[in-house]
Amino acid sequence: MTTGFCQALSALMVGGALVLGALQMALAAEPPLIERLEALSDADYDDLLDFVEGNALFTLYHEAGHMLVSQLDLPVLGQEEDAVDNLATISMLQSGDADMDHLLSQAMLGWFLSASDAYDDLVFHGEHDLDLQRGYRMLCLMVGSDPDAFGELAADLELPGDRVETCPADYDQAVAAWDGVTEAHRKPENGGGLRWIEVRHDPAPEDLAPFAELLKETELMEVVAQEMDDLYRLPAPVLFRSTACQEANAFWDPDAREVILCYELLGAFAELFLEVLAEDD
């Protein structure tokens, strides 16, 4: 699926800028999302869920990074958003699992798809880098970790050769940075101990039910929660919760000590995929 998806993505790129059109205006005239999901072929629906799963998993690792910075009082040089993007990418790469590499590729492509083609909409003073920057930074870390596995993807997305050559150093630096700041908080290998992270899935509205079911079936939240519990000594209990938020979002709430993943965000990932599918047709 990745090769065909990259081809569709490349067809939407002009001079290095992603052109998706006026997505919000288009969606206003579309049937409800649930109806469009039901109209997909089995193959397209599976590909859509694959894309949503990869982006949701990366988001969970990203928000878990914010949780670690907050709970462990970690020092962060530069933007925290960049640091936790790096953690999410590194965590998925270090699993050593081909399926995880594939899901990470889906998440990386998600940043390209969410990039704005309208310069008036670009926010240069925000706490997040531009989506294309985040996508290319992820891609560089991926290539830096394994040029053979991700070299073709980098070529498809036109990451310059001279930049590819510097990516292994970027990857090593990102790994060393996270290892350094978390070393004092790591549990001994196979250290076990109490489980501090609970996972809860709230009921989803009918139109977002497929995404709630996806989270339960794949156990994405449980995977990330267990990894954080296995690796780090947390000072207090934490809740990972999926819920309806009335907005497409995910966030770490330090006061409640909750990582929140909104069902609406998974719906937004699906909308991105459907936009590319429509352009490809």
Rank of each mutant, 00 (worst) to 15 (best):
L266E: 02
T59S: 07
N249T: 15
L141C: 10
R134E: 00
A149R: 15
L130G: 08
E264Y: 03
Q133W: 10
A154V: 07
L215C: 10
L9V: 15
L141Q: 07
M138V: 05
G151A: 09
F124G: 11
L215P: 04
D170C: 00
E35H: 13
T243D: 13
P147R: 10
T182H: 04
A184D: 09
D50K: 08
I34F: 04
S70G: 04
Y263A: 02
F273G: 00
G96N: 11
E275P: 01
C245E: 11
E189F: 13
L93Y: 07
M228T: 12
Q24G: 11
A248W: 01
T243A: 15
H66Y: 01
V238A: 13
A256Q: 13
Y136G: 02
A176Q: 09
L261D: 02
E38I: 05
F150L: 06
A270L: 03
D101T: 13
A250T: 04
A209V: 08
V164Y: 06
P210D: 06
M142G: 06
E38H: 12
L74W: 05
Y263P: 01
R137K: 15
D146S: 13
W196K: 07
L220S: 14
M108K: 00
V84E: 01
E247H: 05
S105N: 10
L208S: 09
Q94L: 13
E213D: 15
D47A: 13
L220C: 10
I260E: 03
Y119H: 08
S105A: 14
N86D: 10
L109V: 13
A236Q: 11
G267K: 00
F112A: 12
S116F: 07
L122D: 08
V181D: 01
A176W: 04
